[in-house]
Simulated scan of single mutants.
Amino acid sequence: MLNGEKIIERPLRWAMVGGGRHGQVGYKHRTGALRDNTAFQLVAGAFDIDAERGKDFGINLGVDEKRLYPDYQTMFAEEAKREDGIEVVSIATPNGTHYEICKAALEADLHVICEKPLFFTSQEVLEIKELAEQKGKIIGVTYGFSGNQMLLQMRAMIEKGDIGDIRVVDLQYTHGFSANDDADKFSDAQKWRVDPKISGPSFVLGDLSTHTFYMSQLIMPKMKIKKLLCDRQSFIPSRAPLEDNAHVLMRYENGAVGTMWTSAINAGCMDGHRIRIVGSKASLEWWDSNPNELKYEVQGQPTQTLVRGMPYLDESCSADERLGALHSEGLSESWANIYLKFAIAIDAKNRGDEETLSNLVYPDINAGLDGVRWIENCVRSADNGAVWVDVSEVQESLSV
Rank of each mutant, 00 (worst) to 15 (best):
Q233E: 11
V278K: 07
T212D: 10
G255M: 08
V248D: 12
S187Q: 07
A267F: 13
H211M: 01
W261C: 04
W287S: 02
D182F: 12
I219K: 02
V257K: 07
K224C: 01
D288G: 08
I277D: 04
M260R: 11
S238E: 15
W286C: 00
K191P: 01
S283G: 01
A282R: 00
M250I: 05
W261I: 08
G200F: 12
K227Q: 10
N180T: 14
W286V: 01
M250W: 12
G206M: 11
K281A: 01
V257H: 11
L249E: 10
Q172D: 08
G279I: 01
I225R: 09
K185T: 04
S209G: 14
W287E: 05
V194K: 10
I198W: 06
Y214S: 01
G272F: 10
Y252A: 04
S202N: 12
G206T: 09
G206S: 13
F177E: 08
D288E: 10
H273K: 15
E253G: 00
V169G: 02
G268L: 08
V257E: 11
Q217S: 09
Y173V: 09
F177D: 09
M250Y: 15
L171G: 11
A179H: 10
P196E: 13
D271E: 14
N254S: 05
K227H: 09
I277V: 12
S199E: 11
S216I: 00
F186R: 05
P196K: 15
L171Q: 11
H273E: 06
R193P: 00
L205A: 12
Y252I: 00
F213I: 10
D244T: 05
I198H: 05
V169L: 05
A267E: 15
T212S: 14
A179G: 04
T174W: 13
L205P: 08
H175R: 12
S202P: 08
T262R: 15
L249V: 01
L249T: 03
P221V: 00
F213Q: 14
D288Q: 14
